[in-house]
């Protein structure tokens, strides 16, 4: 049985449109315009137990909506979702005890009291006996290295420390499936890296299935063997990050630095027309976006055009690939 099975999932929101300004406010007293918004359209995928899957997409693409349907907060408008054999929207307690969700911007901790006291509430909510409470707590405290923060009122903690405590609270009942919505938002670089390490460890040690959304490509690169790309509510890609780069960017970046004079523009005009030039801040350096199959021959050609001091061949940066995908550009190398 797969951990998560999604088949033809749709979610449509209804809302009212409001015209701006004083007149708009007065007018909307009488008449309100109805707007339907399809946040998720016909998404299907399967995730096996123990996978860590990144959920990518621009703001408003439908990532959070999908996570909320999977965690049972929202009812799907159409289609089927099944997690651990349960239908999430029925919110069976047996189901809710096996999952957890962390939303980077929302807190489930009481701010005036120490985390430990909030955890005691969670202990009752999730019906943990004293033994498993102690055991899970000790394990998580060690993994997160938060021993001395447990008794500090939450409002006195730093943002990074607070996020750790949110995770601690979310994981206390040892969920089999963990949904993370922007878990690293607002954290400094060091805290982000620590959190990633922790999540990797969690997945390795307990086999927790993790599905996460993030704005930071580093999160995705560090954690996810697999990514789902969603845009305008539709699934655009499902596979590994490398495949995504290969598929959406058939280009590599070729950087050649010449020792004295760069080749003339006439010389460059001889290159294959599919090759494009990218801006460079060094007059001696030539930056080219080259189709993968032309890399070898183009490099050889350039080496003959002048005295070459340095050659570099790189993939297009992943942010650029994703960014271009979201702005709807087909050919990534060229556009830049």
């Amino acid at each position: 049985m797969p951990a998560i099975l999604v088949d033809g999932l749709c979610k449509t929101y209804r809302s009212f449109r409001k015209a701006p300004g004083l007149m708009g406010a007065v007018r909307s007293l009488i008449w309100r315009e109805h707007v339907l918004r399809e946040a998720v359209r016909d998404i299907s995928f399967v995730i096996e137990e123990g996978e860590v899957v990144g959920f990518l997409g621009p703001n408003g693409a439908g990532k959070t909506t999908t996570l909320k349907m999977l965690s049972g907060i929202l009812h799907p408008s159409k289609g089927r979702a099944e997690v651990l054999g349960f239908t999430p929207s029925q919110r069976a307690f047996a189901y809710l005890r096996q999952i957890s969700m962390v939303m980077g911007q929302k807190s489930m901790l009481w701010h005036e009291i120490p985390t430990y006291d909030t955890l005691l509430v969670h202990k009752e909510i999730y019906r943990l006996d004293d033994g498993s409470f102690r055991r899970n707590l000790d394990e998580l405290v060690e993994l997160l290295a938060v021993e001395d923060l447990l008794r500090v009122p939450v409002r006195n903690l730093s943002l990074g420390e607070r996020m750790k405590m949110e995770l601690l609270a979310a994981l206390l009942h040892q969920p089999r499936v963990l949904f993370l919505d922007e878990p690293t938002i607002g954290l400094d670089v060091v805290s982000q890296a620590r959190l990633r390490g922790f999540l990797r460890e969690l997945n390795r040690k307990f086999g927790t299935t993790i599905m996460l959304t993030s704005h930071y490509m580093d999160d995705i690169q560090a954690l996810c063997q697999r990514v789902l790309l969603i845009d305008h509510g539709q699934l655009r890609f499902d596979g590994s990050l490398n495949e995504l780069v290969m598929q959406s960017s058939p280009y590599k970046l070729l950087n050649v630095t010449f020792a004295n004079t760069p080749p003339s523009s006439q010389a460059l005009a001889m290159l294959d027309p599919r090759i494009s030039q990218r801006p460079s801040d060094d007059p001696l350096r030539l930056n080219l976006a080259v189709p993968r199959e032309l890399i070898a021959e183009t490099t050889a050609l350039l080496l003959r055009m002048g005295q070459v001091a340095d050659v570099g061949i790189e993939d297009v940066p992943i942010e650029e690939v994703i960014g271009a995908l979201f702005t709807g550009q087909e050919q990534i190398g060229v556009a830049a």
């Binding site: 907060i73 919110r91 307690f93 809710l96 005890r97 969700m101 929302k106 909510i125 019906r127």
Partner: peptide, 10 residues
């Protein structure tokens, strides 16, 4: 949206 978090509880 804090209701989201409350709805997650068993």
């Amino acid at each position: 949206g804090e209701l989201d978090l409350l709805l997650l509880r068993p």
